[in-house]
Computed example of a mutant assay.
Amino acid sequence: MTVQLPSEIVVDRFLPTVRSMLAAELSDRGFAQREIASRLGVSQAAVSQYLSGDRHVEERFAEEPRLQATVERIAEGFDAGTMDDYEALAELLELVRAFEDRGPICAVHEEEMPALSGMGCDLCVRGRDSGIQAEREVLSNVRRAVRQFANATGVPAHVPNVGTNVAMALPDAVDETDVAAVPGRIHAMRGGVNVPANPEFGGSHHVATTLLAATAADPSVRGAVNLATSENLLAAVPAGMEAVAFDAAYEDRRRRLDALFESGVPRIVYHEGAFGIEPITYVLGTSAVDAVETGTALAARANDGRN
């Protein structure tokens, strides 16, 4: 992977595309190549290449309605004499700023630098920030935990019908948008597990509710994974690791969990279901990876029939 600045995307991909589109628009309005070259600040030979299609055009930019409208507006202004170079530059700079903030320049930049994927170009637009760094670390931890869960032997047998989720909370999390998880949940499928999407903040409700109650009581607890409650799974809980039951009802669940965790947060909490509610076990940990390591170890012990 190469470290690449967003300004390189602007110079190498955005600017040639704009110049090519402007050259075509001005040519259609009867501008001579020499006049076009003067307006664009390039050589007449370059204009000839733009018009003949010999210069690369980034289609993701060229197909953007906002860029098309800006190019047409500038070309019309040049033709009518109602726009000068300063105003044209202002239009393009405004468009660059918009494209860099979760726009097509951001998308191309993420493609060139996969380390930025999922960050929405926050690093480029908003600068280095401890909050953004924390979000990145949480998302990375959940991605790693999901891979471990998906690759663990015997896990599908313990995935609930409603699905499993792997979650991790930000420090000082207050609501579901501070918890990263997999949208759509993880489901057992053809002897394996299906992960429908990359983790994102706000991707869970029930697992997030349990985790938020746990981390509010003990800030060191920030990860969780849910499994199907079964006799074998509960029997696999090793000595010294407490599994605590709670009522399955959804109504006032957060309040009841807060009360449950007042005396301490166990590594495992579970319920045995109710009408329309599948029995679920929540495995908690210091991170998503920690929770998954504990959860997959329990699943393996349950499959082996060991206590």
Rank of each mutant, 00 (worst) to 15 (best):
Y282F: 15
G120V: 04
A173S: 14
A23L: 09
L67E: 04
Y86W: 05
V108P: 01
V159C: 02
D84T: 03
S48E: 13
I280Y: 01
R306H: 00
N161M: 14
D247K: 01
E262R: 15
D175G: 13
T164D: 00
A297Q: 13
P16V: 13
D54Q: 14
L95E: 09
V125E: 01
Y86A: 13
P183F: 12
S220D: 15
M119P: 00
E200V: 11
L93C: 10
L211Y: 06
T294R: 14
H158W: 14
A107L: 03
D178R: 05
A23V: 08
S20P: 02
G81Y: 05
Q49V: 04
G41S: 04
V108S: 06
Q44A: 14
G77C: 03
V237R: 08
V125R: 10
L227N: 04
Q44G: 06
D84P: 05
A167V: 04
L26C: 07
Y270T: 14
Y250V: 08
G41A: 07
A288K: 04
F61T: 04
I268G: 00
D175P: 07
S230D: 08
L26D: 06
D28I: 01
R102H: 09
P183C: 03
G103Q: 07
S7L: 13
N161H: 15
A107Y: 01
G202D: 01
R136W: 09
S117K: 15
A173F: 13
D218V: 09
S263F: 03
M189E: 14
Q68C: 01
V289N: 03
V11I: 14
N165R: 13
R19W: 10
E35F: 02
E87R: 11
A32Y: 08
E137W: 07
M83E: 07
E242T: 15
G103W: 02
F31I: 02
F275H: 08
I74W: 07
F149N: 01
A274F: 02
L92I: 15
A90S: 09
A245Y: 03
D290P: 02
A245W: 09
L233Y: 08
P114F: 06
V292P: 04
V221M: 14
D247N: 08
A80C: 05
L89R: 12
A299D: 06
E63I: 12
M1I: 10
R147N: 02
A235K: 10
R102N: 11
G305Q: 07
S117D: 10
R34W: 10
V11P: 00
V269A: 10
E262M: 13
I268R: 01
V237F: 08
A145P: 00
L51E: 11
R97T: 07
A115F: 11
A291N: 06
M113S: 10
L51K: 14
A224C: 11
R190G: 08
A69G: 01
G30I: 07
E94F: 07
R185G: 10
R34Q: 09
R55C: 07
G305D: 12
A181F: 02
V244M: 06
L260P: 03
A145C: 05
G240Y: 13
V221E: 11
P183K: 12
S204W: 02
V71R: 00
Q148L: 15
A90N: 03
E251Y: 02
V292R: 09
A249M: 12
V159P: 00
E111C: 05
D79R: 02
T2E: 00
T286Q: 10
A224V: 08
E137Y: 11
G223M: 05
R254Q: 15
E293F: 04
R254W: 03
